[in-house]
Amino acid sequence: MFKKILAATALLFAVASSFAAVDVNKGTAAELDGIKGVGPAMSKRILDARKEGEFKDWSDFMQRVKGVKEKKAAKLSTDGLTVNGQAFGGAPAAAPAKAAKAPAKQ
């Protein structure tokens, strides 16, 4: 009985760790390679860009890493990649529009 419990626990741990998120600012080359869609070439581009400084957000990441646009960013995020712990949320929210001034009274 103990062996079955131990085996089940090990299996759950293995499954949970396979879905663990990897942050682009903290992940090693091996951890980045573990994300589906990130191969050795992309992980090298990520690490090279990271040498200039940490990525601030997904927009910064997409600007600095060649080959990553919105569609690719969304796919990588779905597969477990994060930037500062945040999943990709699509295009940045537009700045709120300023309220139109009321017409001047005559």
Rank of each mutant, 00 (worst) to 15 (best):
V38C: 00
V38A: 06
V65M: 11
A41L: 12
E52K: 13
F61I: 09
K26N: 14
K72T: 15
K3D: 13
A14D: 00
D33R: 11
I35M: 09
V68D: 11
N84R: 10
F61Y: 13
A95E: 14
A91W: 07
S77R: 04
P96Y: 00
F55D: 08
I35Y: 06
W58I: 08
A104Y: 02
M62E: 11
G90H: 11
R45I: 11
L11I: 10
D79H: 09
G37C: 00
P96W: 01
K56G: 08
G67L: 11
K56R: 12
L32Y: 04
D60F: 05
G37H: 01
G89K: 15
A97P: 06
E52Q: 13
G90V: 09
A73S: 03
Q86V: 05
A73G: 09
F2E: 11
S77P: 03
E70L: 06
G90F: 06
A73L: 04
N25M: 06
S17K: 04
A21D: 14
A10N: 03
S77Q: 04
D48H: 04
R50D: 10
A10F: 07
G34N: 08
S59L: 13
V15Y: 09
A7C: 08
I5N: 06
G90S: 04
S17V: 12
K75E: 14
K26G: 15
D33Q: 13
M42V: 13
L12K: 05
K26E: 15
A29Q: 07
A49C: 10
